[in-house]
Computed example of a mutant assay.
Amino acid sequence: MGESPHKESLTLQLEAAEERLRVVLGLTDSLVFEIDADGRYLSVLTQSDELLAVPREEMMGRTLVEVLGPEIAAPFMERIQYVLTTGQPDRFEYSLEIAGTRRWFSADGMMVPQRASVAFLVRDVTQQKSLELRLLQADRLAALGTMAAGVSHEVSSPLSYIRSNLRFIAEGLAELRQVLSGAEGIPDRPRMERTLEECEEALTEAQQGTERIHHVVGDLKTFARGEDADSLEGQVDVRRALETSINMAMPELKHRARVLRYLQPVPPVRGSESRLGQVFLNLLLNAAQAISEGAPDKNAVEIRLWAEDGQVVSEIHDTGQGISPENLKRIFDPFFTTKPAGVGTGLGLAICQGIVTAMQGEISVLSTVGKGTCFRVVLPVAPSTETGD
């Protein structure tokens, strides 16, 4: 016996409603999942399978754990139980690897009337998340730039008269040595000469230290300039940006590894020197943190710079612990980090990729667990220099 006219009409209405829903979802790029109390997919509505972990046909009738894995399924199950128990809607965010790329989603859950199931409206918010992390990093960099400018200003004044006084002392010691060498009858001359020599050595070390501080202050000023003084359309001396970053990272590097520099002269690129310096500094600090302290003679951070085929290539290679293959494919994802809690935020490399991409370049990484990691930054030569104008 066939279905009654009422049931046939209801079926047609449901099919028409579902088709209208598919049209709406197609306009919004959203997904709708209906999932029962056991976490099993009852319905999957989407314009395409592009944002699904597996094709739609493979999801139907399977559980969240089977499709997404226990780690991602857990918050879904918590929300399902909450909505079914309280009858109240709920919202949460989660991330998922789709086609080798980490994407972020926002899910709104609501109980389905007269069914022990929850419908989730899921939206892709990856771009929004990316913008949020850029704004967060911009705020942090603005604060750091202000602090760096203040520190460099406060240090510059006392440093200038310390350097001046050291030069005065050096000139005085030189006169004393000249007098001592020509004088006769000086008692205990050998002791006096040793004392003078020790003073000269101490003075040389003090002068080297103040020059180091002078360079650090200059590096802080460069870092603090920001985009107002150094836009993405400027000409960037890549070697200078790299050397400045090495100087700033040296306190972290010197106790962990030998720093080997192979920096060839290269033509300028178009972009921002301060932002490129930020990229190099981040990569150098990552290299330092990948190597344990205590054995600098057994480890190295090798920095190379050269030009080829209209591009400027820089590489930072460390002999650290390396990155596992499963983490390597996520290394540029926002908020992903392999560092311990409190050490890394997972923002640095995502920001680096954004900066390099904005400069029309590419950043890539190769790594072997137990042997080390190599980051490569490739930037196009600025057009005016590439044509020889």
Rank of each mutant, 00 (worst) to 15 (best):
N327H: 13
L349W: 04
W306C: 07
N299A: 14
P340M: 11
S274R: 01
G310P: 06
L281P: 01
A307Q: 12
E273K: 06
E302W: 08
Q311W: 05
S314H: 02
L347H: 12
L305Q: 03
P296N: 14
L263Y: 09
I303H: 09
K339M: 13
S314N: 01
L284S: 05
H317Y: 00
P265H: 11
F280Q: 03
R261W: 03
G294N: 08
E326Q: 13
I316G: 02
E302Y: 01
I316N: 04
I323C: 10
K339I: 03
V269Y: 02
A300C: 10
I316W: 04
I303E: 04
H317W: 01
L263A: 12
K339P: 00
E293H: 00
A287F: 05
I303A: 07
N282A: 15
V312D: 02
V269H: 00
A287E: 01
G342F: 13
N282C: 11
E308Y: 07
G322F: 10
I316E: 00
S274F: 06
F335W: 05
S274D: 13
P268E: 03
D297Q: 09
P296S: 12
L347W: 10
F280Y: 15
V313C: 09
A307I: 03
P268V: 10
E293Y: 02
R330S: 15
G342P: 12
N282K: 02
L281F: 13
V301C: 11
E293N: 00
N327T: 00
A257E: 07
Q264H: 14
D309T: 08
A287Q: 01
S324H: 08
